[in-house]
Amino acid sequence: MPDQLLYAMEAGLNGLMAGVMYSLVALGFVLIFKASGIFNYAQGVLALFAALTLVGFQDGQVPFAHLINAVFGTELHHFGWRLPAIVAIALAAGVMVLLAIVIERYVLKHLVNQPPIILFMATIGMAYFLEGLGDIMWGADIKTLDVGLPQGINETVESVTGSLLGYGFFVDNLDIVASVVAALLVISLTLFSQYSKQGRALRAVADDHQAALSVGISLRFIWVLVWSIAGFVALVAGIMWGSKSGVQFSLSLIALKALPVLMLGGFTSIPGAIVGGLIIGMGEKLFEFFIGPMIGGATENWFAYVLALLFLVFRPQGLFGERIIERV
């Protein structure tokens, strides 16, 4: 096989892996959108916040150290212990649940019955707030996240492709772990929403708020539940992205990358989020590989959006989205 084709295949494969990472963020969007019709812009910042909290717990940082030092003139920064990864993850998940309760009580409850665009803008406001809060709590410096996930080149893939094709593909172990985790996440979410009582309630709310209310489902509880799950998904995404590229502000920008994924897959479909992520991930890597060098490179910045834009013109509801029916 010609080298060019092999390189393209490698780029495509890595694109698929990157796509899984986008899907992880997109999943959180879909969950909240399905259950409450809210387009949650803050999902990316949730991931950043979760990752920051995780690192903070792991390293035993003093929360708000920066602020306390500035106000009281003290010199706090660390408690001086390190928590094991699993405890820190559990604590961070706890914080995300707490955050879900706070968001429901102080924001969403007051915005019931507002038009979707107002809710969308409220989540942008929340995103700013959380970003500031995360930075004040844990400091804005770039942190390394290490919860013991394998990293580096996967030798099995390299040797197998090497013996079959004569060229060993480079695939990061972390990407493989992310794919497995994403698959597990989707399976468990599907099982949860299909077979558990809360999951059924969740689907009922997604179908029709008022009908769900009238059969005795607590809307507020469901919202807390959904935001907690979204927070948990954000934590998983935060761990994956944080292990890959460090915990820093740019983590919150992956939320923007998840948007075209959603548009492609449809806002209401969990499989759509996965397939959309794979298409975007592979598409942008292949485009960068073939076309990028001709027009100056760094096409990854915009390719996903333009692809989604062109796609939407032909199919406005996305690949798997529910058909949009409008009535006057």
Partner: peptide, 21 residues
Amino acid sequence: TDLAAHVELMIVGGLIVIFLI
């Protein structure tokens, strides 16, 4: 200044939510 910038982010974000409510 960086701390002030973060507080500013929080205030702007919080204000937007408060305004919308």
